[in-house]
Structure formats: structure tokens, C-alpha cells
Amino acid sequence: MNSVFMSPSKIVLSLIIIICFQSCTKNVDFDQIDDASIHITYVSTLVYLNLTAPKFLDTFNQEIAVTTDAVEATITQDSKPYLEKVEFTVVTNNLFPRNFELSIIFYDALGNSIYTLQPTIVVPPNSSELTTIIEIPQVDIPVIYETKSFGFYIYLAPSSDGSTISMNDTATLELKSSVKLFFNYQKI
């Protein structure tokens, strides 16, 4: 009488046949890589300042209308094709009873002004923590890669009542900042 069960050798042979004749791949589309778009955002700390009254006075204790400083920076070109947006976050705290404006100007290697961050940061008098977000739109991004230094200009607007800052003022102008860099890696 024949057994209803297969012998071990038949089982192994059947297994081999099943494995050899089954489908090997399912549909894949490698061209999808062209549609891949990886968005990455990096945050970096930036400049900060904590200025007291003497910074706004000259040697004769007269107010200086414009106070300046500059940061030289080398920006590599590697990320240029992928940088999509730059967003600055500036937090100010002004204990002076005076109005300040802060401008940031980009300079190229020859010292030419090539870009001014817009809008200008307005710091009202006696203002507690105030956050301003400034974006460099995608169309202006290439200018960053031409930049060799950043100029910081603080404009001290005249007071409406004629009062001036004196050397003994204990007030401070604080500024904190950070930058978010938005990358879009479309072509890996």
C-alpha cells in the first residue's frame, strides 16, 4: 500500500523546485530617487551683545549716533546647492529709555556692501524681551556665499524730549540671536 506521506527525499526535491521556480523580484522603480527630497534644518547660535551706556558715548561723553562692529567669516560653498532658506531669530531686551535700530549688512571680499538684512530690527525704548524673525528668501541665498564679513550697525535715535544717555546710566541693551539653516537635498 502506498503511503499518503511523501518520503523525505521527495520533500527536499519539491522544496528545491518550489524555490527555483518562484518569483525572484517584485516591481521596484529606482527612478523614484529623482523625487526624493530630504529637508534638514540645523540651528546655530550666533552673535550676542550686552551693551552699557559707555558704548554709546564718545570720549567727550557725547552720544554716538551709530555704533558699529564686524565679524569676518569664511563660508564654504559646499552647501550652496541645497540651502533653501535662512531664518534669523533675534531677541532684544532694552532697558534704555531710547529707541534703537539694528542693521546687518553683508560685505564681499572687496569690502563692498552686497546685502542688507531686511527688515531693520527696531528696538523700542524700555522694551522687555522682544523677538524678531528675519528670513533670507531663497532668491537672495547666493549672496551669502559671496559674503566675507558682516557689519552690525546700531542706530541710536534722538530722544523726543531731548534727554541723553549719561555715563552713569545703568541700563543695558541686550541682544541674543540664532540662525536656522533650511536645507533641501533633492539630488542625493
Binding site: T45, L46, L49, D69, S178
Partner: peptide, 13 residues
């Protein structure tokens, strides 16, 4: 690093 502390000191850039 906390960033660049700007000193606005023209006599000592």
C-alpha cells in the same frame, strides 16, 4: 560655544 560676543569697541577691534 555661545556665539560671538560683539563688543562694539572701535579702539580694540
Amino acid at each position: 560655544v555661545e556665539g560671538f560676543q560683539l563688543l562694539f569697541d572701535p579702539n580694540n577691534p
